[in-house]
């Protein structure tokens, strides 16, 4: 290696890596029967199955938009794939073990949503020494104004609020919760990262590298050797939300790092 090359590589990596460092958060099992949310290390609580179905009750364009949001997570390309479910189910029956999503004017307990736009619930069961994710439901506040899809930045109204909420980006966020991801900006200390999994409404529309890396971490690294038989073929499924990618997509950040490193190396070696 030429003497001048090493510092360049070190500086390049040192400069890029902090910006690309993962910040995603997830819920873990503490090994003593407790679920601990917003962690950045530990054993994540994930779906043991390789797929799970979601019954979508939004109707029309909103159902289509929800399917796109499901497909976006599938395209990350991990072992876990969402399916569109056909079993009739409403989101507020957490004991039916059928994942469902739909509109509601109140939360499942009949309470006003308050400042919440949509709520994902995750039901875990303690079985032996493991926590199993057995049911997930999503309710979206029907009393607000929604658009099936609003590309680009959200336009505030005169009062600083949002005229119409983008249903698709909200569902992308909620399906991330359904996978087991939490808010990266709610860890201790809070992390600053661009992610659709951050906690408040904003202009992030698509899954970000940190979101994808979170799913890859949860579903590529978790053990599936004890997965239930035939778990790949749930029987209440119409279609896969969309075909997933062939391999894990580690996100734009890693791709950028690789591209920059490659190009820098070529520049130096060609001189």
């Amino acid at each position: 290696m030429r003497p001048a090359r090493a510092p360049f590589y070190i500086a390049l990596v040192a400069t890029l890596v902090p910006a690309l460092a993962s910040a995603f958060a997830y819920t873990i099992h503490d090994g003593k029967g407790k679920a601990l949310p917003n962690q950045t290390s530990g054993t994540p609580v994930t779906w043991r199955e390789n797929s799970a179905a979601f019954t979508l009750n939004f109707g029309g364009d909103f159902n289509t938009s929800a399917e796109v949001a499901l497909a976006d997570w599938n395209e990350v390309g991990t072992r876990f794939q969402w399916q569109v479910g056909t079993a009739a189910a409403q989101p507020c029956n957490s004991g039916d073990h059928i994942n469902a999503a739909g509109w509601a004017y109140t939360t499942c307990a009949g309470e006003p949503f308050g400042d919440v736009l949509a709520i994902t619930s995750r039901v875990y069961r303690l079985s032996g020494n493991t926590l199993q994710h057995v049911d997930t439901d999503i309710v979206v506040d029907r009393s607000r104004t929604w658009s099936a899809h609003l590309p680009g930045e959200l336009t505030p109204n005169g009062a600083g609020g949002v005229v119409s909420y983008d249903f698709r980006r909200v569902l992308r966020h909620e399906f991330g919760h359904a996978l087991g991801l939490d808010h990266p900006d709610q860890t201790t200390p809070p992390q600053a990262v661009t992610a659709i999994m951050n906690s408040t409404v904003g202009d992030v529309e698509f899954l970000q590298p940190d979101d994808k890396l979170g799913m890859v971490t949860l579903y590529t690294l978790t053990d599936t050797s004890n997965a239930a038989p035939n778990s790949d073929t749930p029987n209440n499924v119409s279609t896969a939300a969309k075909e997933g990618g062939g391999g894990a997509d580690l996100g734009w950040g890693i791709l950028l790092l690789a591209a920059v490193t490659r190009a820098a190396r070529r520049f130096y070696l060609d001189r």
Partner: peptide, 8 residues
Amino acid sequence: PAGALSVV
């Protein structure tokens, strides 16, 4: 952190 969803 541009933030995302769920909460006003």
